[in-house]
Design a protein around this nucleic acid. Structure first.
Lengths: 293, 293
DNA sequence: CCTTTTCTGTGCATCAGCGAACGGTCGCAA
DNA sequence: TTGCGACCGTTCGCTGATGCACAGAAAAGG
């Protein structure tokens, strides 16, 4: 019944100002248009909203009722615009970031600092094995590893190289000694990731240089792998920042360029231009400069 | 900023249903129109309301906010339509009636009975010397005397003939006797109305048949004139229903056809067709049959 | 009483917004 | 892999809403 809200808005201005001409001026349309809108609305409702006379239109009871409702509507729309534009210009509301669990130790301090710098903001950090989809609005910003994502509506930019080191615990070294070169690795024991989608470069390197039966501790959880290496279960790949955090870890073989995995900063094109996302991107890239991996 | 509310309504349906096609079907327009509306709204706001992807549109924070506001708006409009149509069909709200003060004794019981028959109704009875203007919405129904009003936007129908009688109090008759015919009136004393706009037929009759110096009690208030006649101040014109109500009054000269004043029932054309006004008109005309004047 | 101003109401020419159609993408299932 | 269905996005021709001009009426002002 109450389709085309524009006619309601027109009737609202007529009821407010009392004249068709005044309403037309405010609305920026011709007064004939205003008359047509009123006539159409009244015809559809079957009720006269106004009494016509030489000095203008005066609202009937129905018109007065419409005036009140439309007044409230305009107020709410006005407030809505204020909220939307305020949210668009400023940094507030919610910021949803998703990444691999591996970079969580690096990312969490940055997110916390960003939240502290923007008190109106609520940060939500999603980490999980499943890929959160930017195009469904599940996150504003994603940090992805591996080959550059090439989804059409995504804005991709490089963030950093995540370096991984091959290490063992001091207890392991004391027991089995330090391998002398790559060839000696076949005599050692290893902690390995046991995942199907193992496209990580260091993982493929391990498949090539370490016999499968030497990987005696397998897990599908990065955190568990780290704990296994720390417990002396074997030699394993650990992110560089974790190595720095645990002095007990000893590097077994110098870092190979091949092991580095690029990290990508991905946003959806629809959100990329918003002030909130832009602010976070610059903040994050600035913080990443201080990461030595 | 938030001009054309139709675009808001379109965006609301898209946010509610999640797809352009679904919104287009609900709105009864082509999906191209929906896309255009969304694009226009986003362009004007400078903020993306939706994230586009293959499976449809999902609302951003701004879009979700709009969804809530527009949801409330649609509810309020729906309730407004219900109220307006209910008011148009039923008899409720306010009924404003205006008339000359003279007919108040006749009209008031009718108004009270009509209000009692329609519990949802509030009756407002305006009486005053100034003419309340129907075209300005000051009253729904007016009762006018004299020549048939001929304003263009008014619906006029005859109600009744208001009869007026020439009477005196019994005390006056005891003192001065009963006049024997019209010629004897010049020897008597009179109570007269003292108004400029005296177009009442009995008033003109008095001007013709009674010397001005014989009208010794003049007032501009009908009620005061009646009181003066009752007090024995002289002979005067009194509405027929007042004569019946006061047995102390004695008719001096038989009723003349000339004295009768027609009463007209007047409504504004914009309100004449409403159920409320129609109900009152039939109610009033029915009650008027019982008036013997 | 006449003039001026203001407002409504209507016929007509115009253009913006609308619908139809087609193409493209994604997801799903065989 | 391939066909199918659902949906989005764009372009083109056209209709209907809009703006314009003028007429008519009523109130305000001198």
């Amino acid at each position: 019944m109450m389709e085309n809200w524009d006619e309601v808005r027109t009737a609202y201005q007529v009821a407010r100002l009392g004249t068709v001409s005044g309403a037309a001026e405010v609305l920026g349309v011709h007064h004939a248009t205003v008359i047509r809108h009123i006539d159409a609305l009244e015809g559809r409702l079957g009720v006269k909203l106004f009494q016509r006379h030489a000095r203008g239109y005066t609202a009937t009871e129905a018109g007065a009722d419409l005036l009140l409702v439309a007044q409230a509507t305009e107020d709410q729309f006005s407030q809505l615009v204020g909220r939307i534009k305020g949210r668009g210009e400023g940094v507030s509301g919610e910021l949803v970031v998703t990444s691999l669990a591996v970079v969580s130790p690096l990312l969490t301090p940055v997110l916390s600092a960003f939240q502290r710098a923007n008190p109106g903001l609520v940060v939500r950090f999603l980490t999980g094995e499943r890929l959160f989809r930017l195009e469904y609005g599940e996150a504003h910003v994603a940090i992805r590893a591996g080959a550059a994502p090439e989804q059409p509506d995504n804005v991709v930019q490089p963030l950093m190289q995540m370096q991984t080191r091959l290490v063992a615990s001091r207890a392991y070294i004391d027991r089995f000694g330090l391998p002398e070169g790559v060839e000696a690795l076949a005599q050692h024991w290893f902690v390995g990731l046991d995942r199907d989608d193992s496209r990580a470069p260091f993982h493929r390197w391990m498949q090539r240089h370490v016999p499968a039966e030497r990987i005696v501790f397998r897990t599908d959880e990065n955190r568990a792998a780290l704990d296994a290496v720390l417990a002396g279960a074997g030699i394993g790949f650990v992110p560089a920042h974790e190595v720095k955090a645990h002095p007990d870890l000893v590097e077994v073989i110098p870092v190979q360029e091949e092991w580095a995995a690029p990290l990508w900063l991905v946003t959806h094109v629809d959100l990329h231009r918003t002030a909130k996302v832009q602010a976070f991107l610059t903040f994050l890239k600035d913080a990443a400069k201080g990461w030595h991996c």
